[in-house]
Amino acid sequence: MTLAKRIVPALDIKNGQVVKGVQFENLRSVGDPVTVAKAYEQAGADELVLLDITATLEERDTMMTIVNAISSVVFIPLTVGGGIRSTQDMTRLIKAGADKIFVNSAAVKQPELITKGAAIFGSQAIVGAIDVKWEPKSKFYQVYVAGGTQPTGLNAISWAKEMVALGAGELLVTSMDADGTKNGYDIDLYQQLTEVVSVPIIASGGAGKIEDFTALLTQTTVDAALAASVFHLGEIALPQLKQTLKQEGVAIRI
């Protein structure tokens, strides 16, 4: 045996609530991030990603309170990001209880933020997040920022290598083409990425059914599969997903 592949639910948090809420078995929608995080931990989540999708300063203080509350009752790694622009932002979240911080748009504008963060907290605490879209005309994976609204001209495969060279200890890569389709992860993207970087990769975007996780984790060497809506809507239950993956021969923590 070796390291288990990680199954990572992601929570988008706005105004202190999980966006759209999470559907529990009794079909009640729950928006409280602490309740949701605890439920995912108990269901077998290996890590949680928390994305702050608000931007104002007061709301960021709300995020600190949430991270502190979650880390007081949930004892699995917490990867937190959204609107990180400085090492002070990182320090506040880590003090609140985050284990890893992911940086997206700000790293494109100021790449040294990755290096500074890694120098203070270690590379293992700094995750480079990349939103990627395939450009069929020019035939390359382009990096987008600002929540996937702005193209940067950067080639995602090169930018991934660059982020690792700058000090990122892990990458969280979202395929914008696959995201929301529920048609499966972008296997080709992750095969290309794992050939050029040696840090762990969290794949994100496209999960719709259990077979999508199996395909990702057997056809690529990514370390983790992130998903949101299939878990939130109760379409895939974590225990069943993990059992199935284990039966398929994937190293999984049950």
Partner: peptide, 12 residues
């Protein structure tokens, strides 16, 4: 080959 450093994740 195939094992990253640091070891980061869940092991048995």
């Amino acid at each position: 080959q195939g094992y990253k450093v640091p070891q980061m994740g869940w092991n048995q």
